[in-house]
């Protein structure tokens, strides 16, 4: 499908009101010489769900991976990413502390080849949590938060590889939550799942938003409309529009957004 040429400089980006959990300033990502995102400046509000939408290859996942430095060693990232008054896009930064605070869930469920219990405890133990009661508590809490507890509470010591795709993905969410992060990044978490599992994940996200700031990449516009408070539309590495989800879906101001939302391309 050919895409119309849009004026990439014509964009509308708002700064959401209230406390900002994470903010990027002129972030550019390069794969070698090829530039993947251009001057991305977005502010993500606390305890809200922000969605990043756009066609595949629009740079939304690439951008998301900058936010907890998962692009290290893969791509070059310039610009500032402010988290708790620290520019986390600097060499000196302790990425391990950062990733404990900003967790990530990936497109394909990737539970460890360990038991369900170990999946959640493994990283905690490595981070120095030794008390078995604390560990057990965290297992239950995080599995409950990910709406998986009832399904797996009787088989915590079986292999996580035996879970269905949707269960495995919720386990991955639980695994991230168990670290008690601030922010949760989700990279198309439901794209590999069936509709029922997707619905469960979405329900989970709405629950989680009470305690976590969530940034979710999705190519599913309905999903963005259903779960998110704010939506950013990526096109060819540029953010064309960023505002309240209700606004962007009902009254898109930029031509590219309008065309994408009405299904003209992507």
């Amino acid at each position: 499908m050919t895409q119309p040429d849009y004026n990439l400089d014509q964009h509308q980006i708002i700064v959401p009101p209230g406390e900002i959990a994470l903010e990027t300033k002129d972030v550019n990502v390069f794969y070698g010489k090829k530039q993947a995102t251009f001057d991305t400046s977005l502010a993500f509000p606390r305890f809200k769900i922000s969605a990043l939408i756009g066609a595949s290859g629009s740079g939304k996942s690439t951008f998301l991976r900058c936010l907890n430095r998962m692009n290290d060693g893969v791509a070059t990232v310039t610009g500032a990413i402010m988290y708790r008054d620290v520019n986390i896009n600097q060499k000196k930064l302790n990425v391990y502390v950062l990733r404990k605070n900003i967790g990530m869930v990936f497109q394909h469920p990737n539970p460890f080849a360990k038991t369900i219990r170990e999946n959640i405890q493994f990283a905690l133990k490595k981070h120095g949590v030794k008390d078995q009661t604390v560990l057990d508590q965290r297992v239950e809490q995080s599995l409950r938060a990910a709406a998986l507890w009832d399904e797996v509470k009787d088989k915590l010591d079986t292999s996580a590889l035996e879970l269905s795709g949707g269960q495995a993905q919720r386990l991955c969410i639980a695994r991230s939550i168990a670290m008690q992060p601030d922010i949760l990044l989700l990279d198309e978490p439901a794209s590999a799942l069936d509709p029922i599992s997707t619905a469960k994940i979405e329900e989970t996200l709405l629950e989680l938003k009470q305690k976590y700031t969530i940034i979710i990449v999705t190519h599913n516009m309905q999903q963005a409309a259903r779960v998110s408070d704010y939506t950013a539309f990526f096109h060819l590495g540029h953010v064309m529009e960023y505002k309240k989800t209700a606004d962007i879906f009902t009254r898109p101001q930029v031509k590219a957004t309008e065309d994408y939302i009405s299904g003209n391309f992507g």
């Binding site: 988290y83 708790r84 000196k92 302790n94 391990y96 502390v97 950062l98």
Partner: peptide
């Protein structure tokens, strides 16, 4: 809050 800020800029066990 400041605690995290400090931790973010210091090497930790993982770094070593």
């Amino acid at each position: 809050m400041n605690e995290i800020k400090e931790k973010l800029l210091k090497p930790s066990k993982e770094t070593h």
